[in-house]
Nucleic acid binder design. Sequence first.
DNA 1: CTGAAAGCGCTTACAG
DNA 2: CTGAAAGCGCTTACAG
Lengths: 339, 339
Amino acid sequence: MKRPTIADVARRAGVSKGAVSYALNGQPGVSDATRQRILAIAQEIGFNPNSAARALSGATSNAVGLALCRPARILGIEPFFMELISGVEAELSARSYALTLQVVASPEAEIAVYRRWWGERRVDGVLVCDLRIDDRRLPVLAELRLPAVVIGGPGEDGGPDYVWSDESVALAEVLEYLVALGHRRIARVGGLPGLRHTEIRTQAFGAVCRRLGLERTTTVSSDYSGEEGARATRRLLSSADRPTAIVYDNDVMAIAGLSVAQEMGLTVPSDVSIVAWDDSPLCQLVHPSLTALSRDIPAYGAHAAGRLLAAIAGQPLGDFQDETAHLIPRGSTAPPRQP
Amino acid sequence: MKRPTIADVARRAGVSKGAVSYALNGQPGVSDATRQRILAIAQEIGFNPNSAARALSGATSNAVGLALCRPARILGIEPFFMELISGVEAELSARSYALTLQVVASPEAEIAVYRRWWGERRVDGVLVCDLRIDDRRLPVLAELRLPAVVIGGPGEDGGPDYVWSDESVALAEVLEYLVALGHRRIARVGGLPGLRHTEIRTQAFGAVCRRLGLERTTTVSSDYSGEEGARATRRLLSSADRPTAIVYDNDVMAIAGLSVAQEMGLTVPSDVSIVAWDDSPLCQLVHPSLTALSRDIPAYGAHAAGRLLAAIAGQPLGDFQDETAHLIPRGSTAPPRQP
DNA sequence: CTGAAAGCGCTTACAG
DNA sequence: CTGAAAGCGCTTACAG
């Protein structure tokens, strides 16, 4: 089957290729009647402009890149990324943009991917996840002048646009709720150290605990995996002065923690309360269901994608503070059992 | 920053653009010494061939498409897809291919995406998931002559290549194991009806149960979601003659089922045994950990991607039967409690 | 083994 | 408002 080209449309419409191009792209230069006729013919013969030819003529590639730097086993189990991608996709496909996805093994590999994408003109811009302290990717993107939107922040001035959500406020809501229930010894199982939002949460955790006058405020670091979450939980629950409530940086670790508590003969929530950050359907699959910090992840992705398209069009919209996660109390939190 | 082009490389090497192209693509037509020199210069100035120009010159687009037709909430929670994508990615990036991902709402939308990709020359081939009975996508792909590999099978003659795994044998292993433990009333919570592999499992379930002389063999249909899995489990466990073992078509439903059993005051595994199809890390996060049918999903994806690249190169390798899932017994299965 | 040239299918100034 | 033409950066026959 031969693909129809712009020349086929032009021939059938009795106009030049240039006119077809103008009509298709909504440019001035053709009369309204001609435009309608051309559009109808293009539709009729199923014409889609060759994306390579388009990109080569200096237009955009109509693709956006997303490089993910997490091991497969963590990517698979974290509902966050798939939900984010779904949202990104929804926005992109509404604007006829494609998403080019690449899983990379290290930040260096990710930078190499950006350079290659840029050299190949594969993508018009990129979405950046998992921002680190002093992130080396940002200077490279700036050097290449590759439009970018960072998911997670807040950002500094002069960099790319950020789409972010206030982690500190969300964490404060959790801690105030636990304190209101009567908890005084609260621990946190944090995500991968070195990630920007992990550090923000760690700082906020300390600050809010001090403000609320809490005695014991341990943060144990992990890597977001269930195994690490389980290990951290085991350590916390084995200590002499064990916490009565634990906050986890993601839902996978919270579920692992719940399982460890049960395995150690503790009852959730009366012996230990559990709160999960990120509320995927997983939280409602377990028994008891998990109290969680919830927010609309697909929408978060869609906002980031929308901002990126604006940046690509040369009209960066500036940073965007997305909805703050809100606490959804479920069966895994309750007042601590009186000693 | 100006992107280096093939002309820049040619100038610095003192050869024609054609020679550079031959050198870069491993074609004959340049001496070995010249080739080495050209390669070194390309490397040095960070040259990456413009993918649009390449695609336009009749070469390939060096991209492969994957359209996913599942709601966001199911995509997010099913570790299967992310693991599959990781494997696909690993194979593609080793061969410098990009993955273009699109989430679609319906099979019709998916067909439209294929037509558009083909018209735009966006991708050189596609990976097809979730095959249905009388799948309408296949004739369209054949009509467009768009190379394709179907993930899941087995396939019929004359179609695209399939990469598949023997579901019947895996299911037989599960049922024989449960029967050996002493179970006689075994139920199954199946996946989305209409999907090819769901139907294969349903037929196999009936056949194996007959062969083993089992009395009660109920299959309840669902949609792979935790909610549906929970609902189906509640119905099964409320029946007068409730099953002593339940096999679930994915791990998410199995976890939901475990939670329902606990909520109904039943003990797993002594009151009811649970087996999950697909063994993601989730299965080991819950308590008791789930007995599961395990196989290497990233490898499955990698095999499919490798076959697709072969098909794109015009050398389809034929159907490929991947590893059969094997049973990993864990804490969720045991002999039924004596009545 | 190498160079000059056509051509892929668009977009976009430039004339009319 | 429309047409003819150059040009994007490659690949690939075709001469030498």
